[in-house]
Lab assay of single mutants.
Amino acid sequence: MATGGRRGAAAAPLLVAVAALLLGAAGHLYPGEVCPGMDIRNNLTRLHELENCSVIEGHLQILLMFKTRPEDFRDLSFPKLIMITDYLLLFRVYGLESLKDLFPNLTVIRGSRLFFNYALVIFEMVHLKELGLYNLMNITRGSVRIEKNNELCYLATIDWSRILDSVEDNYIVLNKDDNEECGDICPGTAKGKTNCPATVINGQFVERCWTHSHCQKVCPTICKSHGCTAEGLCCHSECLGNCSQPDDPTKCVACRNFYLDGRCVETCPPPYYHFQDWRCVNFSFCQDLHHKCKNSRRQGCHQYVIHNNKCIPECPSGYTMNSSNLLCTPCLGPCPKVCHLLEGEKTIDSVTSAQELRGCTVINGSLIINIRGGNNLAAELEANLGLIEEISGYLKIRRSYALVSLSFFRKLRLIRGETLEIGNYSFYALDNQNLRQLWDWSKHNLTITQGKLFFHYNPKLCLSEIHKMEEVSGTKGRQERNDIALKTNGDQASCENELLKFSYIRTSFDKI
């Protein structure tokens, strides 16, 4: 039985969820670079991206490699990797027998973001014989899940209580170790020597080791999670996991709180800001991140802002960003909400898709409305799209047979046209069989910064309504002859009103 693990408890099935942008060198404390989270699957090609990484700022997932063999891993080693800020997950990587050479110096898994409450997941690794993470000293947050690894031993010899604050939620089941077939031998045991430290858990006094050649490092209890030197002297209180010299914040392997210019500090002093819960960055760093993602459509890219001495992905609820200094300031009234469309555009074809934009005031991208039916549609669209004030790209209304009016965009005031449909149009209306009105132009103002209007096959939309939009939106004169079809717009509506004058002759039985 794995020490510190839980057996036999019912657990939810383990679901495996399925960018080499360097964020800056980590400095003297770390020998390499800070790398983003990685999802490495199918083959070993991307694994080489770990070569210079000291910190993975995010998670590391290595999974679904069915053609790899043990010899493929023999020359692979990433000794610079010290810390993973989120979680480490391995799933069905064939041929991998140990992690001792792959990650010989991995010391800390912070667990800032977890995989279903777990910071370390080893699942269905069919050839893994031992973990071998002999320098792993601290899992700051989260638990361990090690399950269905039929060859995995050296679990009962690990004292997880020396690595985690609590072992109650560890789930370590259905491994070879369960069948008591392992016969784990710690260093020196074969020669009758006791080389590794022994600890007591559940009444068992057991030597602690990761492999037959690597003991588990056990520091004096007084050192807590700070770690200790090879001689057993406690590291500085700002260290986490390990250090090369005692009581020196510049000799830590990793930091308990924050890293700044080669030393570990309790908090980031001005003019620095907390970033990702582990390091200090200056304003320029946060500003660069903001600008890199301002026009990016890459998933996970955030326009970072500053709030409460932190550089964070977005302002919290009730705050909006001051564009001059990136500071989050309290909103006066309802907060603006910028919604970034991942692929640059979004099609609204149902109430469900409209709900995804609920509360958005600025759309960074283009909207395509293609709704053919739905219950209580006008009210639903207004509830979900009615706060949109600005669209950076274009607005396209296409084959939306259920629409009679666009009044559900009740606050839309600006279409920038930074991206144009077919390279020309910022407003595009095609084949809307029941569209009769755009907006009530006596109450609604709309500016279209650039781009043209396109109207074709809107049989109940009168040309007068379209011409009014040209005047109000500032697009009059931009359109070419064929942009607004004269014969297919309003051709099934009563669009022309003329005053009919009647004269009559009164007659009676005795007068003409």
Rank of each mutant, 00 (worst) to 15 (best):
H28D: 05
H28T: 04
H28N: 14
L29Q: 03
L29V: 11
P31R: 02
E33D: 04
G37Q: 10
G37C: 01
M38Y: 10
D39S: 10
D39E: 14
R41M: 10
N42Y: 11
N42Q: 12
R46P: 08
H48I: 10
L50T: 02
E57K: 04
G58T: 01
H59Q: 07
Q61R: 15
L63A: 04
L64D: 15
L64R: 07
M65K: 04
K67I: 11
K67P: 05
D72S: 02
D72H: 02
D75P: 03
S77Q: 14
F78P: 00
P79Q: 12
P79L: 05
P79I: 04
K80N: 12
T85V: 08
L89H: 02
L89M: 14
L90A: 07
R92S: 12
V93H: 14
Y94A: 14
S98L: 00
L99S: 01
L99G: 02
F103P: 00
P104E: 02
N105H: 05
T107K: 10
T107R: 02
V108H: 13
R110V: 07
S112Y: 10
S112I: 15
F116I: 09
N117T: 08
N117L: 06
N117Q: 14
N117C: 05
Y118M: 08
Y118H: 13
Y118R: 03
A119G: 10
V121D: 00
I122R: 00
I122Q: 00
F123I: 14
E124P: 00
E124Y: 13
E124I: 00
L128T: 03
L128S: 01
L133Y: 03
L133E: 01
N135P: 04
N135K: 08
L136V: 04
M137G: 08
I139L: 06
T140S: 08
R141W: 06
G142I: 01
S143N: 10
V144R: 01
R145D: 03
I146K: 00
I146V: 11
N149P: 01
N149K: 00
N150A: 05
N150K: 05
L152R: 01
Y154K: 02
L155P: 03
L155Y: 06
L155E: 04
T157H: 10
T157S: 07
D159R: 07
W160R: 15
W160N: 01
S161R: 10
S161F: 06
S161V: 13
R162M: 13
I163H: 01
L164S: 10
D165F: 10
V173G: 04
D178W: 14
D178S: 05
N179P: 05
C182D: 02
D184Q: 15
I185Q: 08
P187H: 01
G188P: 08
G188C: 11
A190R: 08
K191F: 15
T194S: 09
N195H: 07
P197T: 08
A198D: 08
T199Y: 05
T199Q: 10
T199N: 11
V200G: 14
F205R: 02
V206H: 15
E207K: 15
R208S: 10
C209R: 03
C209L: 02
H212N: 10
H212F: 14
H212W: 13
S213I: 11
H214F: 08
H214S: 10
C215I: 03
Q216P: 02
K217N: 15
V218I: 12
C219S: 03
C219T: 01
C219K: 02
I222L: 04
K224M: 07
S225A: 05
H226C: 15
A230M: 15
A230H: 07
G232Q: 08
G232F: 03
H236R: 01
S237D: 13
S237W: 12
E238P: 01
E238I: 02
E238W: 02
L240Q: 06
G241N: 02
G241P: 02
G241Y: 10
N242V: 12
C243P: 00
S244H: 12
D248S: 09
P249E: 09
T250Y: 09
T250L: 11
V253L: 09
V253E: 04
R256G: 02
D261T: 13
D261E: 03
G262A: 08
R263M: 11
C264D: 00
P269V: 06
P270I: 12
Y272H: 15
Y273P: 05
Q276G: 15
D277W: 06
D277E: 14
D277L: 07
C280V: 01
F283Q: 02
F283K: 15
S284K: 05
F285Y: 02
Q287H: 15
Q287G: 14
D288V: 08
L289W: 02
H290R: 03
K292W: 12
K292L: 14
S296W: 15
R297Y: 02
R298I: 05
Q299Y: 04
Q299T: 14
Q299S: 05
Q303S: 05
Y304I: 08
Y304M: 08
Y304A: 07
N309G: 12
N309P: 03
K310S: 10
K310C: 05
K310V: 03
P313A: 07
P313N: 05
P313V: 03
P313Y: 02
E314I: 03
C315L: 02
P316L: 03
S317E: 05
Y319L: 13
M321T: 08
S323P: 14
S324R: 10
S324V: 14
L327I: 05
T329P: 02
L332M: 13
P334L: 10
C335Q: 03
